[in-house]
Design a protein around this nucleic acid. Structure first.
Lengths: 242, 242
DNA sequence: ACAAAAGTGTTCATGTTACACCCATGC
DNA sequence: GCATGGGTGTAACATGAACACTTTTGT
């Protein structure tokens, strides 16, 4: 903001979002899954790309992320965080700076919305869900952006409660552990996992139990006194759709 | 990138940088210090602001950060990382999305450059250095941006080698510890600090010693095999000025 | 000799990992 | 009854904080 030359060089600002959820595969194991949008115009026509769009003058970055998220999935995220601003000169034929967010969706909400779309036949067009481990070839630098989002998720799960963003309000410890295992890509010891999350103080036990197989498992709630992740001094105006 | 309406709403992209270094105060204790620029036009004329400028069509975000950094300090950073993209609608009278970076400068390089400026009388105008703990009132949302940068630095120092970015190629463990202490704002046990950084494998002992007071202290080098911080899958094109 | 910083050793508390074991349910 | 996941106990090990102690210099 100290330069004198004309700033307007035809740089456009786009906002895209890496939307993540857990879906169970054929074996019943949860996998990280995300929606992609098939592009209907050049560049990269017909290629799969991250949901996103141009930033509107009247909306904040986070509002734009929430908007395209709703347009793509019909849902509001359980967690939304800015990932990175990508601005390499040649990442698109025209000059575009993409501010990318990443979001978590509750898997039960995704399933319910999918069922509703099937019932009404009103699903968004050109949107499909993909297993994060088996993505098609993607437009622009979106493959690397997704890699980075998954890396951030794997890191963040170690020092925050973001994994709760995948789960409904009540869940068993096995379900929470399965979420961690899907994110980290490795099995966790159930006994040690229990003690770690219990001592973290982020869980509130309920008096309900999930029955149906073997010994019933106690249901827990997320402790809503604590945010899913510490955003530091980033005040609500910048981190909330408000 | 899926929307149909006209994208061009007069949104401009600025790049600013929180430039951090260590300077010794009157007592000889190192303090985090940063350069600010006095604004010469509205909005916020005469207020202090972060160094920055409009993003040029032909330069990447990181190049823009490096450029304003050089314009402000005459130096290249020892560490440079994107901090956050700020895009609240009313953070400026006109619509501006600011992609903010944070950078570390070696304190010896800053001192040398200051001396050179004094010798030649060619110092950049309207630039002054401030102790991070005693900042004046700032333009826009820049005070909060600096808070966030300092928070990020404090966090990152715990799981990376970023503190080395403040120091010359050779330094004593006491100097490294002083850097950590200035960042964290608390004293560290010299004995435990030594073992922790030694076992981290990021230090290479030399055969030289810093003499002059009491028992000579061994000089160390940073292990250049490892980056100052793990940037994950963000490839060089996005993280380097190249 | 003494002060002060460099550097080593030791102890205690805490957290992590591995794994043995008991518990409660569906079948 | 027995298989299976839910849940508890425990020992081994790694990590970190606190602090006593030795070493080496300048004065």
């Amino acid at each position: 903001m100290t330069r004198t030359r004309d700033p307007e060089g035809g740089i456009r600002v786009a906002v895209s979002t890496v939307i993540l959820t857990l879906r169970r595969d054929a074996d019943g194991a949860p996998r990280i899954s995300l929606p992609l949008v098939r592009r209907i115009r050049d560049p990269h026509r017909d290629a799969w790309a991250l949901p996103g769009g141009w930033l509107d003058v009247a909306e904040s970055l986070e509002e734009a992320a929430g908007r395209t998220l709703a347009e793509t999935t019909g849902l509001a995220p359980s967690y939304l965080e800015q990932l990175y601003a990508f601005g390499a000169v040649h990442r698109s034929p025209t000059r575009v700076v993409s501010v990318v967010y990443w979001a978590l969706l509750r898997s039960d909400a995704v399933d319910a919305q999918s069922a509703a779309y099937r019932a009404t036949g009103a699903a968004p067009e050109n949107v499909d869900w993909f297993d994060a481990a088996g993505l098609p070839s993607l437009a622009f630098d979106h493959a690397r952006i997704i890699d980075y989002a998954l890396w951030r998720l794997r890191n963040k799960v170690g020092y925050s409660r973001v994994a709760h963003g995948f789960l409904p309000p009540e869940f068993t410890l096995a379900e929470l552990r399965e979420a961690y295992e899907a994110i980290l890509g490795r099995r966790l010891d159930p006994a040690n996992f229990r003690r770690q999350v219990e001592s973290a103080g982020s869980l509130v036990p309920t008096e309900s139990f999930r029955t149906g197989s073997h010994r019933p498992a106690r249901l827990y709630r997320s402790n809503t006194d604590v945010e899913l992740a510490d955003r530091g001094p980033l005040a609500p105006e910048e981190t909330r759709t408000s």
